[in-house]
């Protein structure tokens, strides 16, 4: 099984990683998209005056 990693994805805003798994015939078997970033705005904005 061949694995192709696209890291980072580019020409857009944000971070991302794509892992592609090919079978023996070279066809795409499965693809995973991962987001390797989190900053936590949902938490640290709490209690801050607007």
């Amino acid at each position: 099984m061949k694995r192709i990693t696209i890291d980072p994805i580019t020409r857009l805003e944000g971070h991302g990683k794509i892992e592609i798994f090919l079978n023996e015939d070279g066809e795409v078997n499965n693809v995973y998209f991962q987001v390797p970033e989190l900053r936590g705005f949902e938490k640290f904005c709490e209690g801050r005056p607007v």
Binding site: R39, G40, E42, K43, F44, C45, E46
Partner: peptide, 21 residues
């Protein structure tokens, strides 16, 4: 601005983002 996350811990942030939000 992301530095404001230093008021919280990893656990608190994950809980808020992935559970409580």
């Amino acid at each position: 601005i992301p530095g404001l996350a230093n008021f919280s811990t990893k656990e608190d942030i994950f809980h808020r983002v992935y559970k409580e939000c």
